[in-house]
């Protein structure tokens, strides 16, 4: 129970594929487009001096698109051990989850359209627990995700309890 005897766990994490940043950025851009359009419409009405709407939207948008995905990427990581998978995520609210392969019910590899564009995939492990019944790990190369699925499946001897 001695904290000092514990290895510095966060250092041993494998980072996600850098393309994850791009995917998140594109997601943010798509999500912010309606806001940008709204700001442009408001500007065109000339209610306030020019830039009163567009300025803040652009500043917040730049931070959200350029900085946030990078920081999120840096906060994320995983570690694949012989018998367990550790998934770390979150900037403000950090979550550090470990799923032992012996408790995995079934495994999904998901791929959204943006992920497909960059050759990425999301690995989802399902457990029987009510909490963390599915643990997802995005930002893997699709091939890696498939390989990890096979590796984990070798440990899962049965799909049901």
């Amino acid at each position: 129970m001695d904290a000092a005897s514990q290895p510095a766990e966060p250092d041993m994490l494998t980072p996600l594929d850098p393309a994850f940043v791009k995917v998140v950025r594109i997601g943010w851009v798509l999500g912010l487009l309606p806001v940008l359009l709204g700001a442009l419409v408001l500007e065109s009405r000339e209610l306030l001096p020019w830039g009163a709407f567009l300025g803040p939207v652009l500043v917040v948008g730049m931070v959200a698109v350029l900085r946030v995905p990078l920081r999120r990427y840096k906060a994320r990581g995983y570690r694949l051990d012989e018998d367990r998978l550790r998934v770390v995520k979150g900037l403000l609210f950090r979550s550090d989850t470990v799923v032992p392969f012996g408790r995995v019910q079934h495994i999904d590899v998901e791929q959204g359209p943006l992920e497909r564009l960059h050759g990425l995939g999301t690995l989802v492990l399902h457990t029987a627990g009510n909490h963390n019944s599915s643990v997802s790990l995005p930002g893997l190369l699709h091939g890696d995700a498939l390989a990890m699925r096979e590796a984990i499946r070798a440990h899962v001897t049965r799909e049901t309890m």
């Binding site: 609210f93 979550s95 470990v98 799923v99 457990t127 627990g129 963390n132």
Partner: peptide, 22 residues
């Protein structure tokens, strides 16, 4: 089934965490 260590912003600075078990 699983073990999660969760920390909010305050918990990260003050060095404690919640443990959630599946």
């Amino acid at each position: 089934q699983s073990v999660e260590i969760r920390q909010g912003p305050l918990a990260q600075r003050r060095g404690y965490a919640d443990l959630l078990f599946g």
